[in-house]
Design a protein around this nucleic acid. Structure first.
Lengths: 154, 154
DNA sequence: TATTGTTATACTCTATAACTATA
DNA sequence: TATAGTTATAGAGTATAACAATA
């Protein structure tokens, strides 16, 4: 057991927290404006984009009810958002054969392209940031981040 | 292997971009839900929170017009949002002495506390992430991130 | 005349309630 | 009876247009 964490370690954690938060905020500011502008130009609502994301990350087709749970929105709100996405051809919606009350929703090829373009927009903002780093700083950050991402995300 | 092309540098940049994007996404997911829940509980709109942020980062009091420019929202929308913030006591609004068409808005003590609490909520999410890192990884990331943040943000 | 801020009106998105169909 | 989805209605929030006060 650690009787007490040394001030140095605590300070380093606090410093990393502050630096990560600052970086986080910087990247957010660098990508949000263009992102919002683009989904507005596409005529998609924020909720519809979130819907595409949830469907993209899902293991397979999802019912409207499951979508509403994962999005944290009411069933009617999701129902209407999905209806609009169906009309735009971004998702496919089919009656579930094992429970005909349910309708299963999944991305269409077009929906995958649309969502992929939006993801690329955000990644592009991160790429610009990376490209502006000094090579030495960039390499060091790449080395330090690799195991962290592998453990927590990948 | 295509060692002749030697795309090591490009690959490392692409890897860092992907890792940063993954980390970014992870932190966003870890903080957004609780954040949204809290501002909803406070009875604040997303725009009102953004208003508090802009005022907090501003060099001094801002006119409603300047706020609308920085927020990217219409003058009426900001006017109504500010009116509500005034009634809640989160901001102060005073007629500008040099141009009586303008009204200058700034955070009240209460508004600073409210916004500070929301910032702390986001930072807490980052802190949880940092605390869960292996000490070796955490130290390495802290070392690599320090100069980057100092150059780009700090 | 132009600009700042507010009020009037219409539109979008959401939630609650009511309804239909299936279980 | 309970649940999935849709439709009806009402409440926020925003934008455009119209207005008042000041420049």
């Amino acid at each position: 057991m650690q009787a007490s964490v040394s001030p140095t370690q605590a300070n380093r954690s606090a410093e990393l927290t502050a630096d990560l938060a600052a970086l986080f905020r910087h990247l957010l500011g660098a990508t949000t404006a263009e992102f919002m502008q683009t989904i507005d130009k596409l005529g998609l609502s924020f909720t519809q984009v979130k819907t595409l994301q949830v469907l993209d990350e899902a293991e397979g087709p999802l019912s409207v009810k499951t979508l509403s749970d994962r999005l944290g929105l009411s069933l009617p709100a999701v129902s209407r958002g999905v209806e609009s996405l169906v009309q735009r051809g971004e998702v496919k919606r089919e009656e579930c054969v094992s429970d005909r009350r349910s309708k299963l929703v999944e991305l269409s090829a077009r929906g995958r392209r649309t969502y992929g373009r939006l993801v690329e927009l955000k990644v592009a903002g991160v790429r610009r940031f990376v490209d502006e780093l000094e090579p030495g700083h960039r390499d060091a950050l790449a080395d330090a981040l690799r195991p962290v991402v592998e453990r927590t995300v990948g």
